[in-house]
Every structure is written in structure tokens, then in C-alpha cells.
Simulated assay, not measured.
Amino acid sequence: MDTVKITNLLKAHSSGDASALDELMPLVYDEMRDMAHFRLLGEQSGHTLNTTDLVHEAYLKLVQFNRIDWEGRAHFYGMASQVMRNVLVDYAVKKKAEKRGGNRHRVTLGPQKVPTGVNLEDILSIHQALERLGKIDERQVKVVECRFFGGLTLEETAKALDISTATVSRDWNMAKAWLNRELTETTKS
């Protein structure tokens, strides 16, 4: 994938060149599809939001950010992670409203690279916990968005957030510990 070309197209779009999007989509689609597929791996069968839907929803939201000074490919994928989180949370809220209730489920962010097998109810629980964590440490929330919702590696997350890999690792470990404790306490109440 041509990182320079993606960066140039993002900057062209930010400068008002609408045609840059026509060239950008084929370059980022496969990686965004991989991110979305990873996020949806553990969803229940019959789930009405599929990988393609999540990619398209996220992409449509991303291209509306025409005033962002894109710093490059990593910045784009970091934002894509955040947007995918928002799309999934919005979808989960809508589905939960349709069901009118339901019990919370315990979610454990274990030592594996990024957890899989998360359902929409879990995404809501994680989202609510992330909102609480954001009041304490916003950077840790961004790390979780990149790693958990975007499936980015430590190195990719570091590039997306413009921080060191060691800082990402530290924030990831701290956020996982905090979230595990928070989600465990929530399920007990």
C-alpha cells in the first residue's frame, strides 16, 4: 500500500479536492474491511450489521471530516478505529432500544493482542466504561479505540496517536486493568 499516495490524497481532500476520494477508497478499503471484519468476528449469527456495512458507514463518516489536517495513513486508520467504535455503539444502542432492556454481560480484556467474540451488549458496556475512563485519561481511551475497536498493533497505534510504542504498551496495559476492574464491578451490581 502506498502510504505517501494515501497521505497526499487525504491532504488533497482536506484542501477541497472531492475527486481525491475516488482514488482514496480503493487504497484504504481492504484494510478498513480487515478492521471491520476483526471487530465483527464474534457477533451473533443473524447480526444485521455486516463487515461491508461497517466499512461503508465508517468511511462515509470519515470523508465528512473535510476540515481535518490528515497527517497520513496512520492518522486516518486511528480515526477509522474511533469511527468504527461510534458506529458499533450507535448500532448497539439502537438494537438495545428495540429490545427494551437486557442484562449486562461481563467483558474481560485479557492478555491476548485484542479480544474477539464481543457482542453488541458488551460493546455498550465497554463504551460506558470508556466514557468513565475518558474523564481520567483520554489518551488511554484513544489507545483502546485503536487496539480494541480498530485492531491496530502497538506500532500502528503509536503512529496513529503520535506517541511511542512504549507509551502505547503502558497505556494499553493500564487501560485493560482499569476496564477489567470497572466491568467486573459493573456486572456485580
Score class of each variant (00 low, 15 high):
91 Y>N: 03
93 V>K: 07
94 K>Y: 02
94 K>Q: 09
95 K>C: 11
95 K>R: 11
96 K>I: 06
96 K>E: 10
96 K>F: 10
97 A>T: 11
97 A>S: 12
98 E>K: 12
101 G>R: 07
102 G>T: 02
102 G>M: 07
102 G>Q: 01
102 G>A: 05
102 G>C: 06
105 H>L: 13
105 H>S: 11
106 R>D: 01
106 R>T: 06
107 V>R: 02
107 V>N: 05
111 P>K: 15
112 Q>R: 13
114 V>Q: 07
114 V>D: 01
114 V>K: 05
115 P>H: 03
115 P>A: 08
116 T>I: 15
116 T>C: 12
117 G>N: 08
117 G>A: 09
117 G>W: 04
117 G>K: 04
118 V>M: 13
118 V>P: 00
119 N>E: 06
121 E>N: 09
123 I>C: 07
125 S>R: 02
126 I>H: 03
126 I>Q: 05
126 I>F: 00
128 Q>H: 08
128 Q>C: 06
128 Q>V: 12
130 L>Q: 03
130 L>I: 07
130 L>V: 06
130 L>P: 04
131 E>K: 10
132 R>I: 12
133 L>S: 08
136 I>L: 04
139 R>Q: 14
139 R>M: 14
139 R>T: 11
140 Q>D: 05
140 Q>E: 09
140 Q>N: 01
142 K>H: 09
142 K>A: 10
143 V>W: 01
144 V>S: 05
145 E>I: 07
146 C>M: 01
146 C>H: 01
147 R>D: 03
148 F>C: 10
150 G>A: 04
151 G>D: 00
151 G>K: 02
152 L>D: 03
152 L>W: 09
153 T>W: 03
154 L>V: 11
154 L>I: 09
154 L>E: 07
155 E>R: 05
155 E>L: 11
155 E>N: 02
156 E>S: 00
158 A>K: 01
158 A>F: 01
160 A>S: 06
160 A>R: 00
162 D>R: 13
162 D>N: 12
163 I>C: 12
166 A>E: 05
166 A>N: 06
169 S>R: 10
169 S>F: 02
169 S>G: 14
172 W>Q: 15
173 N>L: 10
173 N>V: 03
173 N>A: 11
174 M>G: 06
177 A>F: 09
179 L>N: 01
179 L>G: 08
179 L>Q: 07
180 N>Q: 07
180 N>Y: 02
181 R>D: 15
181 R>S: 15
181 R>G: 14
182 E>K: 13
182 E>W: 01
184 T>I: 12
185 E>L: 15
187 T>G: 08
188 K>A: 15
189 S>T: 15
189 S>H: 13
